[in-house]
Design a protein around this nucleic acid. Sequence first.
DNA 1: TATTATCCGGAGTGAAGACTCCGAATGAGA
DNA 2: TCTCATTCGGAGTCTTCACTCCGGATAATA
Lengths: 176, 176
Amino acid sequence: MRSDARANRDRVLAAAEEVFGEAGGAGSTEEVARRAGVGIGTVFRHFPTKQALVEATVVRHLTLLADTARARGEAADAGAAFRETFREMVFTAPAKIALLALLEVPAGEAVAAATVLREAVADLLSRGQQAGEVRVDATVSEVYVLITALANVRGDRAVLERAVGVVLDGLSPQAS
Amino acid sequence: MRSDARANRDRVLAAAEEVFGEAGGAGSTEEVARRAGVGIGTVFRHFPTKQALVEATVVRHLTLLADTARARGEAADAGAAFRETFREMVFTAPAKIALLALLEVPAGEAVAAATVLREAVADLLSRGQQAGEVRVDATVSEVYVLITALANVRGDRAVLERAVGVVLDGLSPQAS
DNA sequence: TATTATCCGGAGTGAAGACTCCGAATGAGA
DNA sequence: TCTCATTCGGAGTCTTCACTCCGGATAATA
């Protein structure tokens, strides 16, 4: 792979993360090309389809999240680790496109990345439960639903913050 | 207004509720026309713009929700009234398009309808708080955010049900 | 029934956007 | 430096979709 090719690929991916993070699936490939400072042809050589481009972006982001989640799993305070990861997934802007992988027909790599992340969350959840910091009747399914639901909210950050607080309270052992 | 005109208008509106309820803003006007058993021209005569059609649908639905919410406000058990309304707003399928009114530039009538509903929810909330069934530090803002966030979740009904349960627990007085 | 204002249907228009194609440019090895 | 396989750029194609237009149909009224 030629050096300029690799550089362009990276710039396209970064631009895609920006565009889809802002506009969701409605973002156009032309806009991605413009922000990457690249022709449309270049975008489509690296990613033969818009779907493929979106997927690559999602995979990159999910992998990143899974890594930090796993790293936090080693931490001492299991409850804090769980809550921090929850917050990060909700607030990290490009996470908002994670749903695209679910709404559209998800392809192989995206599914794999999503599974890895989900397992990391499951691990944090059960550690939190064992530490007595998370209610024991909660399953990964609803935790995941709550995360993705909140991740798609646009609007006042402060309000979202309070909403997350309410949900985390609902996940505490006292709430059950 | 001629009788056939009124009948067609109603059928279009019903079809729109279906289509947008399923596909969101991505639903096409042609599909609406087809399901209404009507030509495209007819759709556009009654609603000069797709935006107008979406709005009319949203207004109709918001108004309906506001009515039931207000009716429930009279009920004896303030806590139950609040929770029921919360659930209804999350689960009623076409509610899922309520966000369209927020994402797009919302016009006069839609804003009015949304405001009415929001006030009805605010009323139920404060009654619930006075009855000691809802935590007093919760404001309408985050309650609304939680509702719309959950309303946009697609997928397993049972999981969503449990997620709603967690959130309602988080809104109980014990959780604060 | 006759008249007509109103309404209907759907082919047609224009814009937007995903994707293709190929001549020009360029990185890397001889 | 020279050569050429690789990559780039962006004009052009094709499809989709919102929206228009008007000849034909139809409800309401006398």
